[in-house]
Write a protein that binds this DNA or RNA. Structure first.
Length: 117
DNA sequence: CTTCTTACA
DNA sequence: TGTAAGTA
């Protein structure tokens, strides 16, 4: 299938699909016309990418993580020990970001209430 | 009509 | 990311 169909079947824009390829996440074949040709497996591949992106991973991290991941009918499972370590670090970073945002929110609330320190 | 690349907001 | 432009 060409990019248009893959986009329709995954709900992902053609723009994003080309971007994933640019980032090395997808490797579609090319017809002599230059048109990209994707396989049925790419539909699942794109969904996998979306799940990882939704988990807060960057395209660069996804590129490293993809080969170490098992896809059990949609359920993504870490296949390498080092991958789990990476994901745990990622989760900790997110926790840090949340803490900082909570502090920022508290500061904002103080200003909004017009309280004196 | 669909896709491609490049460039700009 | 979206979109416009000029092609193949």
């Amino acid at each position: 299938m060409r990019i248009g169909e893959l986009a329709r079947r995954t709900g992902v824009s053609e723009r994003a699909l080309r971007y994933y390829e640019e980032q090395g996440l997808l490797r579609p074949e090319r017809r002599p016309s230059g048109y990209r040709v994707y396989g049925d497996a790419d539909v699942a591949a794109v969904r996998r990418i979306r799940v990882l992106l939704a988990a807060g991973l960057s395209t660069a991290q996804i590129l490293e993580v993809l080969p170490c991941i098992v896809d059990d009918d949609g359920l993504l499972t870490p296949a390498c020990p080092e991958l789990v370590d990476e994901l745990v670090k990622q989760r900790d970073r997110i926790g840090e970001a949340i803490s900082e945002l909570e502090t920022t929110r508290a500061n904002l609330n103080t200003i909004i209430a017009g309280q004196r320190s």
